[in-house]
C-alpha cells in the first residue's frame, strides 16, 4: 500500500542534522552536569568544556574513528567487517616488530624508525582486507561469516607472530605517531583521524568509486546491470577497511607503547556502533561519513564525560547500549527502509 505523498525534503539531510543536534545536546548535558559541580563548589572550573578536553576527546576517538571510517564504506556497500579489531592487533604487532629496541621477540625484530613499520602495518592490513573481499566476492559468502573467520584467524596470526608475547620498547620515531603533538597542542592521532576522514569523504562523495559503493550496497543487481564490476568494488571496500585497521593499529600501538595480542578486542563493535549511530543502514546503500564522525564523537564524549563525572562503568555500558538503539529508533528516515 502506498502512503500519502511525502514532502520534498531530503530525509538524508534531516538525518545528518539530527545527529548534530544529538551531539550538541549531549555536550550541553554533560557540560551542565559538570557546571553543577562547579556551582556546588566541588570543582574549581568546568573540566569538560575546555579546548584541551576537546582535543583529548579527539585523541581518544582516533582509533575508533579511523576504524569507523572503513566500516562506513563496508556498511554502505551492504556488508560488515567484524575483523577490524583483530586486523588492528595483527598489523600493530607486525609494525611493532619493526620498531622495537628489544631484539629477539621475533626472528626479524629491530628498530627501523617509523616509515618501515608503518608501511608494514598498512600492507598487512590491506592484504588481510583484500583476502576478506576476495573470499566474499569470489565465493559469494556473507560478509558476516567471512569476516568472522578473519576475526578469529587474525587474532591467531597476531599471537603467532611472537608466540603470544607483547612487543614493547618501541622507538621514539614510531611512538611519535601516537604521542606526538602538532604545534605542541593537537595530538598526532587526532591529526591522522582528520586526514583519514577528509580523504575518505572525498573518495566517498566525489569519486566514481564512492558512487559505485552506494550503488553496490543499494542494489547489487542494478549495479551490475549498469555495467559496474561489483566484485572489484567489494574487494576494494574491504581493502580500504583493512588498510584503515592498519592505520588504527599504528595509532594504538604508538599510543600505548606496546603491541599486545589482546589489543583491539571487540573494537569492531564500537566501530559498527559509531556508523549506526551516524545513521547508516545495515542493509546497505545508506550512510554518510559526517554521520559516522559524529557517531564516533558521541561515543567519545560519552566515555569522556562519564569518566569525568565519575559514573561507574556499568552505567556507562547501559547508557551506550541504549543510545545505539535510540539513535536508530529516532531516525526520521528509518521508515523509508521499512
Amino acid at each position: 500500500m502506498q502512503t500519502g505523498s511525502r514532502a520534498g525534503t531530503n530525509p538524508l539531510a534531516m538525518r545528518e542534522y539530527g545527529i548534530v543536534f544529538a551531539f550538541i545536546g549531549l555536550c550541553i548535558l554533560v557540560g551542565a552536569l559538570c557546571q553543577l559541580k562547579v556551582v556546588q563548589g566541588t570543582w574549581p572550573q568546568n573540566a569538560f568544556l575546555t579546548v584541551n578536553n576537546l582535543l583529548l576527546i579527539l585523541h581518544q576517538i582516533s582509533v575508533n574513528g579511523v576504524l569507523a571510517v572503513g566500516m562506513t564504506f563496508v556498511i554502505i556497500s551492504g556488508g560488515i567487517d567484524l575483523s577490524v579489531g583483530s586486523l588492528l592487533a595483527f598489523s600493530g604487532m607486525m609494525a611493532a616488530s619493526f620498531a622495537t629496541r628489544s631484539p629477539g621477540v621475533t626472528a626479524w625484530a629491530g628498530n627501523y624508525g617509523a616509515f618501515i613499520p608503518i608501511v608494514v602495518a598498512l600492507a598487512v592490513g590491506s592484504a588481510s582486507g583484500a583476502l576478506n573481499g576476495w573470499i566474499i566476492s569470489r565465493f559469494k559468502i556473507q560478509a558476516f561469516i567471512a569476516t568472522l573467520g578473519m576475526l578469529m584467524a587474525g587474532r591467531g596470526f597476531t599471537m603467532a607472530v611472537t608466540n603470544g608475547n607483547p612487543i614493547s620498547a618501541l622507538g621514539p620515531e614510531f611512538r611519535w605517531f601516537g604521542t606526538g603533538k602538532l604545534f605542541d597542542a593537537i595530538p598526532i592521532p587526532a591529526v591522522i583521524l582528520g586526514i583519514v576522514f577528509l580523504l575518505a569523504w572525498i573518495i566517498l562523495n566525489k569519486t566514481v568509486f564512492g558512487r559505485y559503493v552506494y550503488a553496490v550496497g543499494g542494489n547489487e543487481k542494478s549495479a551490475r546491470t549498469s555495467g559496474i564490476n561489483t566484485k572489484a568494488i567489494l574487494i576494494w571496500v574491504y581493502v580500504l577497511s583493512g588498510f584503515l585497521a592498519g592505520v588504527a593499529g599504528v595509532i594504538l600501538t604508538a599510543k600505548t607503547g606496546s603491541a599486545q595480542t589482546a589489543a583491539g578486542t571487540s573494537y569492531e563493535l564500537d566501530a559498527i556502533a559509531a556508523v549506526v549511530i551516524g545513521g547508516a543502514s545495515l542493509s546497505g546503500g545508506i550512510g554518510r561519513l559526517t554521520g559516522t564522525f559524529f557517531g564516533a564523537l558521541i561515543i567519545g564524549v560519552m566515555n569522556n564525560g562519564l569518566d569525568i563525572l565519575g559514573v561507574q562503568s556499568f552505567y556507562q555500558l547501559i547508557i551506550k547500549g541504549s543510545l545505539i538503539v535510540f539513535a536508530v529508533i529516532l531516525d526520521p528516515s528509518r521508515k523509508l527502509t521499512a
Partner: peptide, 10 residues
C-alpha cells in the same frame, strides 16, 4: 590510558 586522561582532566 583513556581513563587516566579523563581523570587528569577532571
Amino acid at each position: 590510558l583513556d581513563l587516566m586522561q579523563n581523570w587528569l582532566t577532571a
